Amino acid sequence: MELRRRGYDVRVGKVGDKEVDFIARRGDAVSYYQVTYLIEAQQTAEREFGAFAGIRDNWPKYVLSMDEFPQTRDGIQGMNIIDWLLAGDVARP
């Protein structure tokens, strides 16, 4: 709902056998989001960051979680979801 409030058209995506939680489009801009409660286990990190593995474009990719110090890997930005909500539209290209 927050992405829609920010003016994005929001879809769920699938790349191979992996699901991307949200694909947000506004005009010609695209951003991708995975949302998880916490990334405590390596298995969770692999699942959330791995969902973007088949996406070969350069649009922003985010993993949002309640982690105080989120992980970032391979150009995919981890963010605390509360910080993301308070920051406004950080995904504006």
Rank of each mutant, 00 (worst) to 15 (best):
1 M>P: 10
1 M>D: 12
2 E>W: 01
3 L>I: 00
6 R>T: 07
7 G>Q: 04
7 G>C: 02
7 G>W: 05
7 G>K: 09
7 G>E: 05
8 Y>F: 08
9 D>P: 00
9 D>H: 02
10 V>H: 08
12 V>K: 00
12 V>I: 02
17 D>T: 02
18 K>F: 11
18 K>C: 10
19 E>H: 06
19 E>R: 08
19 E>Y: 07
20 V>T: 05
21 D>E: 15
22 F>S: 00
23 I>D: 01
23 I>Y: 06
24 A>T: 06
25 R>A: 11
25 R>H: 13
26 R>N: 12
31 S>P: 09
31 S>N: 07
32 Y>P: 06
32 Y>K: 05
34 Q>M: 03
34 Q>F: 01
35 V>T: 14
36 T>H: 00
36 T>F: 00
37 Y>W: 14
37 Y>H: 12
37 Y>V: 10
37 Y>R: 14
38 L>K: 14
39 I>N: 11
40 E>N: 13
40 E>I: 10
41 A>W: 03
42 Q>S: 14
42 Q>L: 13
43 Q>K: 03
44 T>F: 10
44 T>L: 08
45 A>E: 10
45 A>L: 06
46 E>S: 09
46 E>L: 14
48 E>D: 10
49 F>H: 01
49 F>V: 06
50 G>P: 06
50 G>K: 08
50 G>L: 05
50 G>C: 07
52 F>E: 11
55 I>G: 04
56 R>N: 15
57 D>T: 05
58 N>H: 12
58 N>D: 13
59 W>V: 08
60 P>G: 06
62 Y>R: 04
64 L>H: 02
65 S>T: 14
66 M>E: 04
67 D>Y: 03
70 P>T: 01
71 Q>K: 12
71 Q>N: 13
72 T>E: 09
72 T>W: 04
73 R>E: 10
73 R>C: 07
73 R>H: 10
75 G>Q: 14
76 I>Y: 05
76 I>M: 05
77 Q>M: 04
77 Q>W: 01
77 Q>N: 00
77 Q>E: 03
78 G>V: 13
79 M>N: 08
80 N>V: 10
80 N>C: 09
82 I>L: 15
83 D>R: 07
83 D>L: 05
85 L>R: 08
85 L>G: 04
85 L>F: 09
87 A>H: 03
87 A>T: 05
88 G>E: 08
89 D>C: 07
89 D>R: 09
90 V>E: 00
92 R>M: 13
